[in-house]
Measured scan of single mutants.
Amino acid sequence: EEEEKKKEEIARLLGVSKEDVERILKKNNLDIEQLLRRVQREN
């Protein structure tokens, strides 16, 4: 699934687990696209 791939990509870029990414998304109330763009910009 596309969303899972995005979570895995974010996890890889941040050096965290996919579960961490899911927690970040919930905690910050971000959607996956916003987080992915933010992470890609910083790297």
Rank of each mutant, 00 (worst) to 15 (best):
39 V>H: 03
8 E>L: 14
8 E>I: 11
33 E>Q: 05
19 E>A: 14
42 E>G: 08
27 K>C: 09
29 N>L: 06
27 K>W: 10
12 R>D: 04
38 R>T: 14
15 G>S: 06
30 L>C: 05
8 E>Y: 10
12 R>C: 09
29 N>M: 07
26 K>C: 11
1 E>H: 11
24 I>L: 11
29 N>C: 10
24 I>T: 03
40 Q>W: 06
31 D>K: 07
12 R>V: 08
9 E>W: 10
38 R>D: 15
26 K>W: 09
25 L>R: 02
28 N>L: 15
42 E>W: 05
38 R>I: 15
39 V>K: 01
27 K>E: 15
39 V>M: 04
10 I>A: 10
39 V>S: 04
19 E>M: 12
9 E>C: 09
41 R>H: 12
3 E>D: 15
35 L>T: 02
35 L>P: 00
9 E>N: 05
42 E>M: 08
1 E>G: 11
20 D>Q: 13
32 I>L: 14
8 E>A: 13
4 E>M: 08
27 K>I: 13
4 E>H: 07
22 E>P: 02
35 L>G: 00
22 E>G: 04
4 E>C: 08
41 R>F: 09
8 E>T: 10
18 K>G: 04
28 N>F: 15
37 R>A: 15
31 D>Y: 03
40 Q>G: 04
36 L>F: 07
18 K>Q: 06
29 N>D: 09
4 E>A: 08
17 S>V: 04
11 A>E: 01
26 K>P: 00
18 K>H: 06
16 V>A: 04
27 K>N: 12
38 R>C: 09
13 L>Y: 07
19 E>F: 10
25 L>P: 00
43 N>I: 14
41 R>M: 14
39 V>L: 15
43 N>Y: 14
6 K>N: 07
30 L>A: 05
36 L>D: 02
2 E>A: 11
11 A>V: 03
22 E>V: 07
23 R>W: 13
22 E>R: 02
7 K>Y: 06
14 L>G: 00
6 K>E: 04
18 K>P: 07
12 R>G: 07
34 Q>Y: 07
24 I>N: 01
29 N>S: 08
38 R>L: 15
20 D>M: 14
29 N>W: 04
26 K>G: 04
14 L>K: 01
13 L>Q: 04
19 E>W: 11
20 D>Y: 13
12 R>S: 06
1 E>D: 12
22 E>H: 04
1 E>F: 12
31 D>V: 04
9 E>F: 11
21 V>M: 02
22 E>Q: 05
14 L>H: 01
10 I>W: 01
16 V>S: 03
12 R>I: 08
41 R>T: 11
19 E>G: 10
27 K>V: 14
6 K>C: 09
30 L>H: 04
15 G>H: 09
31 D>E: 08
3 E>I: 14
40 Q>L: 13
30 L>F: 09
13 L>S: 03
6 K>L: 14
18 K>D: 02
29 N>Y: 06
21 V>D: 00
38 R>K: 15
32 I>H: 02
42 E>H: 13
40 Q>S: 05
32 I>A: 15
20 D>V: 15
26 K>H: 10
32 I>D: 01
2 E>D: 12
22 E>C: 04
11 A>I: 02
11 A>M: 08
43 N>G: 10
37 R>G: 11
29 N>A: 06
36 L>N: 01
10 I>S: 01
18 K>I: 14
29 N>K: 09
41 R>D: 14
30 L>I: 12
24 I>Q: 03
7 K>F: 06
25 L>C: 06
31 D>W: 02
38 R>F: 15
23 R>P: 02
8 E>D: 11
13 L>F: 06
28 N>M: 14
2 E>K: 08
16 V>G: 03
26 K>Y: 10
39 V>T: 04
30 L>N: 05
40 Q>Y: 06
3 E>G: 10
3 E>K: 10
14 L>T: 02
33 E>Y: 05
20 D>A: 13
35 L>D: 00
33 E>W: 06
17 S>Y: 04
41 R>P: 04
33 E>A: 05
6 K>Y: 09
9 E>K: 10
1 E>S: 13
42 E>L: 12
33 E>F: 04
10 I>E: 00
22 E>W: 03
32 I>Y: 04
20 D>N: 07
23 R>H: 11
7 K>L: 10
8 E>C: 03
43 N>Q: 15
18 K>M: 11
29 N>E: 06
18 K>S: 06
9 E>M: 13
4 E>R: 07
40 Q>F: 04
10 I>M: 03
24 I>M: 11
43 N>T: 12
15 G>V: 02
9 E>P: 00
15 G>M: 06
24 I>E: 04
40 Q>K: 09
32 I>Q: 01
11 A>K: 01
21 V>Y: 01
19 E>R: 12
22 E>M: 08
12 R>E: 06
12 R>P: 00
15 G>T: 02
21 V>W: 01
39 V>F: 04
7 K>M: 12
37 R>T: 12
29 N>Q: 09
35 L>A: 02
27 K>R: 13
17 S>W: 03
28 N>D: 14
33 E>C: 07
13 L>K: 05
13 L>V: 06
1 E>W: 13
5 K>L: 13
16 V>I: 14
17 S>D: 05
10 I>T: 04
14 L>R: 01
42 E>R: 01
13 L>H: 05
17 S>F: 04
30 L>S: 03
15 G>P: 00
40 Q>T: 07
38 R>E: 15
3 E>Y: 14
31 D>F: 03
34 Q>T: 15
2 E>Q: 10
24 I>A: 03
19 E>D: 10
28 N>V: 08
25 L>Q: 02
23 R>G: 08
1 E>K: 12
35 L>W: 06
15 G>A: 05
39 V>Y: 04
38 R>V: 15
16 V>D: 00
7 K>Q: 03
13 L>R: 06
31 D>M: 05
23 R>Y: 13
26 K>T: 11
8 E>G: 10
15 G>K: 09
7 K>G: 01
10 I>H: 00
35 L>R: 00
13 L>A: 05
23 R>F: 11
18 K>A: 06
8 E>N: 11
28 N>E: 15
3 E>T: 12
2 E>V: 10
5 K>P: 04
32 I>R: 01
36 L>M: 06
12 R>F: 09
34 Q>H: 05
34 Q>G: 09
26 K>L: 13
34 Q>R: 06
38 R>W: 15
21 V>H: 00
34 Q>S: 12
23 R>T: 12
41 R>I: 08
14 L>W: 05
19 E>V: 10
10 I>L: 08
4 E>F: 05
28 N>R: 03
36 L>T: 02
8 E>V: 10
42 E>F: 07
40 Q>P: 02
13 L>C: 03
11 A>R: 03
11 A>W: 01
11 A>Q: 03
5 K>D: 09
31 D>H: 06
4 E>V: 07
29 N>G: 13
7 K>C: 05
11 A>H: 01
25 L>S: 02
14 L>Q: 01
12 R>W: 08
32 I>G: 02
12 R>M: 09
12 R>K: 10
1 E>P: 12
33 E>I: 04
26 K>E: 12
14 L>Y: 03
21 V>F: 02
3 E>W: 07
22 E>F: 03
20 D>C: 08
25 L>T: 02
27 K>D: 15
10 I>R: 00
23 R>C: 13
40 Q>A: 04
23 R>I: 12
14 L>I: 05
6 K>H: 08
32 I>E: 03
30 L>T: 07
11 A>D: 00
9 E>I: 14
9 E>A: 09
40 Q>C: 07
3 E>H: 12
32 I>T: 12
37 R>F: 07
35 L>I: 02
16 V>L: 10
7 K>P: 01
21 V>A: 01
36 L>V: 03
37 R>H: 14
28 N>Y: 15
27 K>T: 13
20 D>L: 10
14 L>N: 00
36 L>Q: 02
15 G>R: 10
36 L>A: 04
42 E>N: 08
39 V>P: 03
38 R>P: 02
5 K>W: 14
9 E>V: 11
19 E>P: 06
36 L>Y: 13
4 E>L: 09
17 S>C: 06
28 N>S: 14
23 R>L: 14
29 N>F: 07
12 R>N: 08
2 E>R: 07
30 L>V: 09
19 E>S: 10
6 K>V: 12
10 I>C: 10
26 K>D: 08
14 L>M: 12
15 G>I: 02
15 G>W: 03
27 K>Q: 14
2 E>F: 08
40 Q>N: 08
38 R>G: 06
5 K>N: 11
24 I>Y: 10
13 L>D: 01
34 Q>E: 15
19 E>K: 12
28 N>W: 15
40 Q>I: 09
11 A>F: 01
43 N>F: 14
17 S>G: 07
6 K>Q: 11
39 V>C: 09
1 E>A: 13
33 E>R: 03
18 K>L: 13
37 R>M: 12
32 I>S: 07
13 L>W: 07
41 R>Q: 15
32 I>N: 01
1 E>L: 13
42 E>C: 15
31 D>C: 05
4 E>D: 11
4 E>I: 08
14 L>F: 03
36 L>I: 04
6 K>G: 06
30 L>Q: 05
37 R>L: 15
10 I>N: 00
8 E>P: 00
